[in-house]
Design a protein around this nucleic acid. Structure first.
Lengths: 192, 192
DNA sequence: CTCGCTTGTCTAGCGATGCTAGGATCACCT
DNA sequence: AGGTGATCCTAGCATCGCTAGACAAGCGAG
């Protein structure tokens, strides 16, 4: 029994290594540089080993996305709980979201830009993704305003944040005005 | 002289054919299906011909994006001018934007999701892109509110629309609530 | 009308990609 | 100690974007 357990543990370790390495590689050189060959070489195994853990590159991206979602949820909750009052909480949340996207562009891409083969807004949505949305909902729900469904409001606020994050990083929006845009967003959308 | 003119005309025609075919192919089967080989076969020429018109696949995507920007600008202006009053104009604009993105997903991707090698928010930004932003600004500028820079407000509104468009199409947001989100967006952001 | 030349096009191929089949090797249990 | 089963790697397939070099077609000059 102990032998089998050890093997399973080693397998799980290696799987974590694959995901961590893929994330690191993507963060340093972009997802284009994350080829199965390079990734295999980095973890000092051959290509087919990757396919014994994941069905394909998509699933690896998906795994990075799930890790990222867990991290983002924690970052959002930490930022919100450190602020006092609904208004300050929402501002802190928005800043934390944009900050996470800016600091972890590859992870953010894995979550929302690339195809990681993940389901969304459905019953079989993975837990970390639902939890990240829940983290948004916790803070945003209280500023949705009367008669406005909290979930719908959160979706809208999230979409705005997502748009700001992606357009800024793609060079579509001048980065120096990020703070002003964030404040304007909170001012207008949140009912305090 | 006439011979040379004819050749140039034929070359321009073929270039338009390439862009139109790439767009059509992308719209029907997705950008992944737009390979240089398939594209070459569709226009009934060999691969290298593509490279005598464009420096690479990126430039072809960029050309589709520019076409799309021109179209989108026209669609936005048409929608806005058909509505009466600032509030109705903004609503019509938002609907037209989301509608364009939903009806032309491949073109929208070329404009904002894929790398078409285009410059943004800079001096050398191509005219169609600046014009599309200008089309947004024309309608949104009048509802920015006192003391709020119209450009900044337009950037924020645009980001929100972009977020809604991309998240909806990626299956991250339930499509059936699009209209309600749009109304909420206009209600909150626009000062009328 | 014919000949050389430029211009334009295609065939063939390079390196790299995601992914997989099949053989070899190693560790385990009897 | 030896058979057995899991584990891993070598080698290869089809396809990708892109390019070099051969080939042909059409032009202007004599």
């Amino acid at each position: 029994m102990s032998v089998q357990e050890r093997k399973e543990r080693e397998r799980a370790d290696r799987e974590r290594l694959i995901v961590a390495t893929a994330r690191e590689l993507a963060e340093q050189q972009g997802w284009d540089a994350v080829t199965t060959r390079r990734l295999a070489e980095c973890i000092e195994y051959s290509q087919p080993v990757l396919y014994s853990h994941f069905h394909g590159k998509r699933e690896i991206i998906g795994a990075v996305a799930l890790d990222g979602a867990t991290e983002m949820a924690a970052a959002l909750r930490a930022a919100a709980s450190a602020a006092n009052g609904p208004r300050a909480r929402v501002t802190a949340l928005a800043r934390a979201y944009l900050d996470f996207a800016a600091r972890n562009p590859a992870v953010y891409d894995a979550m929302f830009q690339l195809d990681g083969g993940l389901a969304f807004a459905k019953a079989d949505t993975p837990e970390p993704l639902k939890d990240a949305f829940a983290a948004l909902l916790e803070t945003l729900g209280e500023v949705a305003g009367d008669g406005v469904h909290p979930g719908l409001f959160t979706e809208l606020f999230w979409a705005a944040l997502h748009g700001l994050a992606t357009l800024t990083r793609a060079g579509r929006l001048p980065p120096e005005d990020t703070e002003r845009r964030t404040e304007l967003l909170v001012d207008r959308l949140a009912v305090v």
